[in-house]
Amino acid sequence: MSGYIAFVKKEFTENMKNYRFLILFAVFLIFGIMSAFLAKFTPEILSALAADMEMTSEPVALDAWKQFYKNISGVGFSAFIILFGSCLSNEYSKGTLVLMVTKGLSRKAVILAKYTVAVALMTISYWISYAATYGYTALLWNDTSLAHVVFAAVSLWIVGFLYLSILMIGCVIFKQTFTSILFTGGIVALISLLGMIEPIAKFSPFILTSKNVDLISGKVIPAEFVIPAFVSFILSIFGLLIAIRLFNKKQL
């Protein structure tokens, strides 16, 4: 336990010192702001630049959330996976973990600490981004008709846990950053594919990343999200357990 806490502290400092947190914070904040901003002003800017362009329809608050989910589930999480893809490979290649492990730090604690810090930073960045979109949307439209805005955001957040858990497996198996990232991307793509197959689509965590906008616009009801969220949660824990098991047998 003490080893876990010490290593969490170390991971946290490390992510500050190597600017990972700063970058992610900036990326997510800017995406949050830009989601609402571009949804509102892109048509106006375009029509100001090209006078002959007709505005097809007045942008609404839902457009801001469309942008938000597209950006975060795509670029936002990718940035996260790319930056954290090196969280173990650096330690493998330099051999820095050897001294820690030979001091009695359990390997489980290493994985859990790395996961904890990644999840914590993801959570902070994610909700900052959400707050920015929320604030700007409220500022630019005085629209309060949207339902389940928070619930929709929570479901994408839950997927973040799953992605990071998959990333931990990738990082444990592969000694190179690039392969770890590739592995994670592959598994995420696989989940999306499985999410399209009819009989299991209802249970797949893929729903959590693809139907958030439908939830806000009222096309789907929150109940449909409950099972996928549960599945995602179980898979995250399962993924972590696999990562720990594999790491126990890994040569450092």
Binding site: L22, I23, A26, L29, I30, I33, M34, F37, F41, E44, I45, A48, A132, Y136, L139, L140
Partner: peptide, 20 residues
């Protein structure tokens, strides 16, 4: 005038950029 209407909204983005 649209530019002046928009710009204040971008101040936080600018701050982030300056910090980076």
């Amino acid at each position: 005038n649209i530019l002046f209407e928009i710009l204040p909204f971008l101040v936080p983005v600018l701050l982030v950029d300056i910090a980076l």
